[in-house]
Design a protein around this nucleic acid. Structure first.
Length: 894
DNA sequence: GCTATCACG
DNA sequence: ACGTACGTGATAGCC
């Protein structure tokens, strides 16, 4: 019969390991009460990953009882050089013991003894009683306890991996010594971390060699007279007492006066019902998700979803279609697609209903697209619809000729507004963020990457759809309430929700791209690149992959002997920044040219050609409305917000963007200096406000101020350029280092410039100070429209993390308010186009710029209307300014 | 899947 | 002494 298993865990050493493994992120692991949880996370992983699968018969977690032990009594300095245990860890000890209890394991500590001694003693008792003993620890010295029936597991890499030691492995690492001899080695070697000395000049290598020869420290000293004379011999003799003392300190006791018996250590297994509220207290979302997936009920969630939801979902068929007609109030609706890009993906299922009347699910698209009650509900404005991702739902339905109206609640959008950090696009993940666990993520249900597959079994598929749509319904009330608490109801109902349909319209309209023109560029660029490639290979003396930074680094900095000015994590940096400082070398100039053209070809020419829809010769981007931390949009598939403009060769890409119809034009309208105007407004800086009120050249005005020129002096280009960089710096949350790098000066000069700036613009100065204090106090910053960004790192210990949060505190209200403004303008603009029945269409948004296609007869009107709408979007204490340009292509609209 | 690079505001 | 400008997305190379 197999022996019973006894598991002994070194709580103290593992707690320290777990804490320091995530020390960099200590401020990111904080629960809703401010309790740090980084060590708890690590410890929990250890219990889950190692202990629970191990299924011991008996288990114990041993802890140090206090500072003084028999070792400190024997040797004053024992562990005397240890820093005080950080408060962030101390506060985790008690919850950690609770965690151990809830995993069904006994905690134990013993005055005057360390955790090691408890383990040593119990290990010996276990062996005597016929157990196989396993010890888990972070302390390598515990290997002295290894024996035939005692295995020691030592964590490495923090606590994620373990090494297992039996007598064989100990022998391997200790050059053939036995576990007993570990203390002999330690005695000679000493231990700086425990602050005991050993013999000077003897490290681990020498200690092992000596013990191999003499077996033990007493035997060594018995024969020391025969040792041939050396400095080492002198040291051994002089520090004999230290050697014996250290050996004694290193030896783990196996006879500690423990007051527990093996019978007290019966492993109880995980106490799920109590572990769930405990995880909720710690905000261990992932653990809760795991438990929910195992079928445990996560009830009593902190926020507001109290009751376990009972799922009532049945297949929708021609026979029960009439049930849908009973849905006249709030309807929860969810549409499943087989891919991310809703301009192409197919609808593979849908589900609708409400908690009270139950849900109906189907894959039969006829029930959705024909003149059915389902369609009637979706197209009836009077029936409020609750969805997840209204834009996706609207666009996909539109492709099937269903016109979704009356959307009231968009779970994705609301969740994003409540906390921009939770920017997952997955319904399950979003629900988990709000402590709703009766639904799984799509990754879990459908698999991810290549393994993605919509469920084939109707029962399973409809259950997942049912759980999703039910989550939407369940979260509506609590999250809507939270919007009210955040004063974000207007932001949602007046800005983000209406905007989502404006964006949907823009995306569906798309923009025409002239593929022939791109193909022409493709062949020209390909040719030029192949010439450049030959030149570069000649200049290098042999062929290599120019696009490989690694190979390029070898050529430049090893073969050609250029001086590396900067390095990356993995090697030499070959970025523009670096290469531009060595353009006198011919190959460098060629490489820069090559890089530029290769980028244009691969990302823009080839990239755009790949995404032109065959049906209409257009590209249809998707604007991500719930991604950025500031409230800006982002654009994907393709990204139309980073089409080249600064360099002529790249700018030519814009010539491929055309109006859909012949004779029409593209019109672009951009806000001039919107972020600085927002800055002037929110800081209420009188000087800056006057500059904008007087419509001055803001960078020139700044230059006059910071360089002490006369108010009407002409500003030369260089000073204006520097002033512009300073203005940008202010918007980004300035640092002397960043500014110095940007304008190519030293840090001290940059520092002076910043000081002068803040002296001149005293309103800006007081605002930057206030906003950081504000962030520290509230934990978040806000834009003009109450868009909120939490900044947990604002109190971080790490200078780096804290500084970043401080810069963010300054930048987000500026960048985010500018984003608010253009969003409002877009809604008003779409309304104006609709109301005036104009043919012109709004096509693109590029952060501070809107692009329209306009028929000839509306050009004049649009040049007037667009700026009018944009600059009156909000009322600031400075004017907003909008400039328009038109042309036959986007390139020409400059 | 990560890193380096480079395109935009 | 620390080591930094803010916000994004796409591509290629490489493990």
């Amino acid at each position: 019969m197999e022996k019973p298993k006894l598991l002994l865990i070194d709580g103290n050493s593992l707690a320290f390991r777990a804490f320091y493994a995530l020390i960099n992120q200590v401020d990111r692991f904080v629960n809703h009460d401010g309790l740090h949880t980084n060590a708890l996370v690590g410890f929990n992983n250890l219990l889950d990953g190692i202990v629970d699968p191990f299924e011991p018969d008996k288990a114990l977690v041993a802890w140090d009882a206090g500072k003084t032990t028999f070792r400190t009594n024997a040797y004053d300095n024992y562990k005397g050089n240890r820093d005080k245990t950080p408060q962030e860890l101390v506060e985790q000890f008690e919850p950690m013991r609770e965690m151990v209890r809830l995993h069904g394991i006994t905690n134990y500590e013993l005055p005057d003894y360390e955790a090691d001694d408890i383990i040593g003693t119990m290990a010996k008792a276990g062996v005597a009683a016929g157990y196989n003993v396993t010890i888990v620890t972070g302390d390598r010295d515990m290997r002295q306890l290894v024996a035939d029936n005692i295995t020691v597991w030592i964590t490495k890499k923090g606590i994620s991996e373990i090494d297992k030691y039996t007598p064989n492995e100990v022998s391997d690492v200790y050059g053939g010594l036995t576990p007993d001899q570990v203390v002999e080695v330690k005695g000679l070697q000493g231990d700086p971390s425990d602050n005991y000395p050993g013999v000077p000049g003897i490290g681990e290598k020498t200690a092992i060699k000596l013990i191999q020869e003499y077996n033990t420290i007493p035997e060594l000293y018995a024969q020391i007279d025969d040792m041939k004379a050396s400095k080492r011999k002198e040291n051994l003799i002089q520090y004999q007492d230290d050697a014996f003392l250290s050996r004694d300190l290193a030896r783990i006791r196996t006879d500690a006066p423990v007051t527990i018996q093996l019978e007290d250590l019966i492993y109880q297994g995980i106490q799920y019902q109590d572990l769930i509220p405990f995880y909720q207290h710690l905000d261990f979302k992932q653990q809760l998700v795991k438990l929910a997936n195992q079928g445990y009920t996560i009830a009593g969630a902190r926020e507001s979803v109290q009751e376990k939801q009972v799922l009532n979902v049945v297949p929708l068929t021609a026979n029960n279609l009439a049930h849908v007609e009973l849905l006249t109030d709030d309807v929860d609706f969810y549409l499943e697609l087989d891919g991310d890009n809703y301009h192409r993906a197919a609808i593979v299922g849908f589900v609708l209903g409400n908690q009270k009347q139950g849900y109906l699910a189907s894959r039969d698209l006829e029930l959705l697209t024909q003149a059915t009650p389902v369609r009637k509900v979706l197209e009836n404005k009077a029936v409020k619809k609750n969805v997840f991702n209204a834009k996706e739902t609207f666009v996909a339905l539109h492709r099937y000729n269903v016109n979704l109206v009356g959307v009231d609640f968009d779970l994705l959008l609301v969740s994003y507004l409540l906390n921009v950090n939770d920017n997952s696009n997955d319904l399950g993940t979003v629900a988990h963020e709000h402590n709703y666990f009766d639904v799984q993520s799509d990754d879990e249900v459908y698999g991810k990457g290549a393994k993605f597959a919509i469920l084939e079994n109707d029962t399973d598929f409809f259950e997942h759809l049912g759980r999703k749509v039910q989550a939407i319904g369940a979260l509506k009330a609590p999250l809507t309430q939270k919007l009210v608490e955040h004063e974000q109801t207007d932001l949602y109902t007046e800005i983000e929700l209406p905007l989502t349909f404006v964006l949907a319209q823009m995306e569906m309209t798309g923009i025409t791209v002239n593929a022939e023109r791109l193909l022409g560029m493709q062949s020209k660029l390909t040719e030029r690149l192949s010439e450049l490639e030959q030149t570069i290979h000649q200049q290098a003396g042999h062929e290599f992959n120019i696009q490989s930074p690694k190979q390029l680094g070898v050529i430049l900095f090893e073969e050609m002997g250029l001086k590396p000015l900067k390095k990356t994590k993995t090697g030499y940096s070959t970025s523009v920044e670096v290469l531009e400082q060595m353009t006198d070398v011919p190959i460098v100039a060629s490489i820069l040219q090559y890089r530029q053209l290769a980028k244009i070809l691969s990302t823009y020419v080839d990239g755009l050609l790949r995404v032109i829809h065959g049906s209409d010769s257009k590209v249809h981007t998707r604007y991500l409305q719930t991604l950025t931390q500031t409230g800006r949009l982002s654009s994907v598939d393709p990204n139309l917000q980073n089409i080249p403009v600064r360099v002529e060769e790249g700018r030519q890409i814009r010539a491929a963007f055309e109006p859909e119809q012949k004779g029409w034009s593209l019109l672009s309208a951009d806000y001039s200096q919107i972020e600085l105007r927002v800055l002037a407004h929110i800081t209420d800086d009188e000087i800056m406000r006057q500059a904008f009120i007087n419509d001055e050249d803001i960078h020139a005005a700044t230059a006059r101020r910071i360089f002490g020129l006369d108010p009407d002096a002409v500003v030369d280009g260089n000073l204006r350029r520097q002033a512009k960089a300073v203005n940008f710096g202010i918007v980004y949350g300035i640092s002397d280092f960043g500014l110095a790098k940007n304008i190519g000066t030293d840090r001290k000069t940059a520092k002076n410039i910043i000081e002068t700036y803040l002296l001149e613009y005293s309103g800006v100065k007081s605002w930057t100070e206030k906003i950081v204090l504000d962030a520290r106090e509230k934990g978040y910053v806000e834009t003009l429209s109450h868009r909120r960004r939490y900044l947990p790192d604002i109190k971080a210990k790490s200078f780096n993390a804290r500084s970043f949060a401080e810069r963010t505190a300054m930048n987000t209200p500026i960048q985010g308010s500018a984003a608010d403004i253009i969003k409002i303008a877009m809604i008003k603009m779409q309304k104006a186009l609709d109301q005036q029945n104009l043919k012109s269409k709004m096509l693109l948004q590029v952060h501070d710029e809107l692009i329209f296609e306009v028929p000839e007869e509306e050009l004049e009107l649009m040049h007037q209307l667009v700026p009018e709408v944009m600059d009156s979007a909000v009322k600031l204490t400075v004017p907003l300014k909008v400039e328009t340009h038109e042309g036959k292509t986007w390139y020409d609209a400059k």
